[in-house]
Design a protein around this nucleic acid. Structure first.
Length: 592
DNA sequence: CGGTGAACGTA
DNA sequence: CGTACGTTCACCGA
């Protein structure tokens, strides 16, 4: 080996020394790519090295660079080798910040970054179109024939095609087959990161945008760890919770079917004689209700609720729906599938959804029924620090809008008390008025409380109105932290326009809250590590930290300190106070 | 077989 | 008192 765009590649036994010699310092962007076998390539400036994964860990500890990766997949691969990075720059995560949307694969991100038409990104599907690899080989051979072997090798080491797009052969994963290509992939990630950094710097609020990019990226490292570590769950306790709701675990398919029809009959016995229905079919349930004298447009729970006493069928149906949800989605099958033999519930995590940028999790980690929290129990010798942000949305509104009066209200533990005072209404009315303003009510017109809200908090209300107007007009929005919220045109009847307005104002609040939360989460991740504490769940405004029991109180204090630190960095000026409810518990259900 | 909408869990 | 997401199911059309 030894040729790669003028580079000398060595299996570096002292990666750190090489990097120090090259002048790499704390926080510098270093490209990082890891092959399936654990070989890592590190790109810096004009140089590069390959090294085994432990070398990366050593450098991370001593030099603490900011590792540039194409996606969370690199961190996942390193975690499998026991390597956890402190900070990162995740090209996919920053792409979502800059451009919005879900799609963030390297070929797409590279194209958008260079202003190339996204529709023409070479398809990287696996396996490629028939003969694609052969075509590439044939092209290389042609190049070799026409320009000599060096030119062909140059092509093979260049992920960028003549049209400026990344070659499909590389975006399919073809970079992992040689150290030289691995390094080329790492160098390109670094190049993309530098371009992203420059793009963020051109935006208004450049500092904020770069800070958000770093948090979003490090949140991606946290996501890889959440996926690997899982949420502690006691299998016996979980089965007890299930047994209390849907009965004991069925022995075999026959018993499962019998239990299912037994559940069904609890509803159908209330049906008029001779009438039956498949309760899982909304159409048939609607007919069933009609036969009982209830003619409804749909059978949603909120609509059925007011008819709960009109016919015994309704209450039975609502109960059936709850049990059916547990039985099908969060039942024994779910437990068997997602709860590991080590008592950890695992799913895939993403640091930002396609809309406002909240974290997402699969396998029910974000939407398991609250009753299952009884089974989320810390390991022996461990406890949970559970912390959730209080009234996060109005506090975030105060910060992002810069409304001085609303900022003053945030000094109260219960923000709605001073707001109610200010409006001259009671607390429940004040809360409804605030939430209606933030999310855009569809019923009523806000009334007196709404008008007083405009008078009392004109800056905050103006911020929301501006978001609503821009969204309705189809103009793109950006959150406080710089995330693009695309507002593509499309059909514009009155209902859709109003929905876009609500979406826009909600996205700016929900999105900013997500940014604050993630900054808090990655701060806790970093500061709590020396205590042996690990973040094991992120739930939009709630953190669950798993910690050895003799460090739990210390960790709880630290989580609060991290919020204060985060608030100061995220909303400079210190005018807005953020609060968290923090408790130390053995079981998630024991909190609050 | 893949896509869509209803329904409902969480925030 | 609105938005988001993930999951399962029935249903539709190929």
């Amino acid at each position: 080996m030894g040729r790669g765009g003028g580079l000398t590649l060595v299996e570096a036994h002292d990666l750190e020394a090489s990097l120090r010699h090259a002048g790499v310092r704390r926080g510098d962007l270093l490209g990082l790519a890891v092959a399936d076998d654990g070989t890592a390539a590190v790109a810096f400036g004009d140089g590069g090295r390959t090294a085994p994964a432990p070398g990366i860990a050593a450098v991370d500890e001593t030099l603490r660079p900011r590792w540039v990766t194409w996606s969370q997949q690199t961190a996942q691969r390193l975690i499998a080798d026991g390597v956890r990075l402190a900070t990162g720059w995740d090209v996919a995560a920053v792409h979502r910040l800059l451009f919005g949307g879900w799609r963030a694969d390297p070929g797409f991100a590279w194209a958008r970054l260079h202003g190339l038409a996204p529709d023409d990104v070479p398809a990287a599907g696996l396996p490629g179109p028939p003969g694609q690899a052969d075509l590439f080989a044939a092209a290389s051979e042609r190049a070799a024939a026409e320009h000599g072997p060096d030119e062909a090798a140059g092509d093979a080491l260049d992920p960028i095609g003549p049209d400026g797009y990344l070659r499909a052969e590389w975006t399919r994963g073809g970079w992992a087959d040689s150290p030289a290509r691995l390094l080329a992939w790492a160098r390109l990630a670094r190049e993309a990161a530098l371009l992203q950094d420059a793009a963020l710097a051109r935006q208004a609020g450049a500092d904020t945008g770069v800070a958000t990019a770093r948090c979003e990226s490090t949140a991606e490292l946290l996501c890889a760890e959440l996926a690997a570590d899982g949420l502690p769950m006691d299998r016996t306790a979980a089965e007890q919770v299930l047994a209390g709701i849907i009965g004991p675990r069925p022995r075999g398919d026959g018993e499962a079917a019998a239990m299912r029809s037994a559940r069904d009959s609890l509803v159908l016995r209330h049906a008029p004689p001779g009438v039956t229905a498949d309760l899982r079919s909304p159409v048939q349930v609607r007919s069933l209700l009609a036969a009982a004298g209830l003619d409804l447009p749909d059978t949603r729970a909120w609509r059925l609720e007011e008819f709960r006493d009109a016919h015994p069928l309704v209450a039975a149906l609502l109960e059936w729906r709850k049990a059916e949800r547990i039985a099908t989605t969060y039942g024994y099958g779910w437990l068997d599938e997602v709860l590991g033999a080590d008592g950890r519930l695992r799913g895939a995590w993403t640091s930002a959804d396609g809309a406002a940028g909240r974290m997402t999790a699969s396998n029910g980690l974000h939407n398991m029924p609250a009753a299952m929290r009884r089974a989320v129990i810390a390991d022996p010798g461990h406890l949970f620090v559970r912390a959730d942000l209080g009234q996060i949305e109005p506090r975030v509104l105060a910060a992002v809008s810069g409304d001085p009066a609303l900022a003053t209200a945030t000094s109260a533990d219960d923000l709605y008390l001073p707001v109610a005072d200010q409006l001259g209404v009671d607390r429940p009315t004040a809360k409804v008025a605030m939430i209606a303003a933030m999310y855009g009510q569809t019923t009523g017109h806000g009334g007196q409380a709404g008008r007083r809200m405009r008078a009392a908090y004109p800056v905050a209300m103006g911020y929301l109105d501006a978001a609503d107007r821009a969204a309705r007009a189809g103009r793109d929005l950006r959150t406080y932290g710089g995330r693009l919220v695309p507002m593509a045109g499309g059909p514009a009847d009155a209902a859709r326009t109003a929905a876009r307005g609500r979406y826009g104002r909600n996205a700016l609040i929900q999105g900013a809250a997500a940014e604050l939360f993630k900054m808090w989460a990655v701060t806790v991740r970093a500061r709590a590590l020396p205590l042996g504490a690990r973040v094991v769940l992120c739930l939009h405004d709630e953190l669950l930290v798993h910690v050895p029991d003799d460090r739990a109180e210390q960790a709880a204090g630290l989580v609060g300190d991290c919020l204060a630190e985060t608030a100061g960095r995220w909303a400079p000026g210190g005018r807005v106070r953020f609060v968290a409810d923090i408790s130390v518990v053995r079981c998630w259900a024991d909190a609050k």
